[in-house]
């Protein structure tokens, strides 16, 4: 179900801070920043840990596994660049590393995405070689 062509969706900008995240996506690897002082993952990427404000941060591989914390299905005016004009699921996913990120859940009808659904990362290509992390029901 993973397409190989860019969809024309709004592509995220990349900042010097987040560049390692996006570089990893070129190899379809999900990485997260960790604060080495707090020993906690943080998201979204920053130059400082939002708990201790320290700058001892490092990038570590993420499992790619998570659970849907909430979901909404865009029905009345779905963005045509996301699913060709069809309804799609926008979800908040709690990753096993303890951080939450927004994403789409694909690979099942959007109405089947529920709170508590176990999901794993999958990828959709962007136009510049990067990939956007999405999620699908865990196999």
């Amino acid at each position: 179900m993973t397409s190989t062509e860019p969809t024309g969706r709004m592509e995220p900008p990349s900042t010097p801070t987040s560049e390692p995240f996006w570089e990893a996506t070129k190899e379809r690897r999900l990485v997260l920043q960790w604060c080495t002082e707090c020993d906690r993952a943080i998201f979204f990427p920053r130059d400082n840990c939002p708990l201790c404000l320290g700058s001892a941060l490092e990038w570590r591989p993420a499992s790619g596994d998570g659970v849907v914390a909430s979901v909404t299905v865009e029905t009345s005016s779905p963005n045509p660049t996301i699913a060709g004009g069809d309804p799609y699921a926008v979800a908040l996913v709690d990753l096993d590393e303890g951080v939450r990120m927004m994403s789409n859940v694909v690979g099942c009808p959007p109405g089947d995405v529920t709170v508590g659904l176990a999901v794993q990362v999958t990828w959709v290509p962007l136009s510049d070689g990067r990939n956007l992390p999405q999620f699908e029901p865990r196999s």
Binding site: R9, M10, E11, P13, F44, E74, N79, I82, M102
Partner: peptide, 10 residues
């Protein structure tokens, strides 16, 4: 712009 909008949240 980086972490939410690409997912088409209305």
């Amino acid at each position: 712009a980086e972490w939410e909008m690409p997912y088409g949240i209305r």
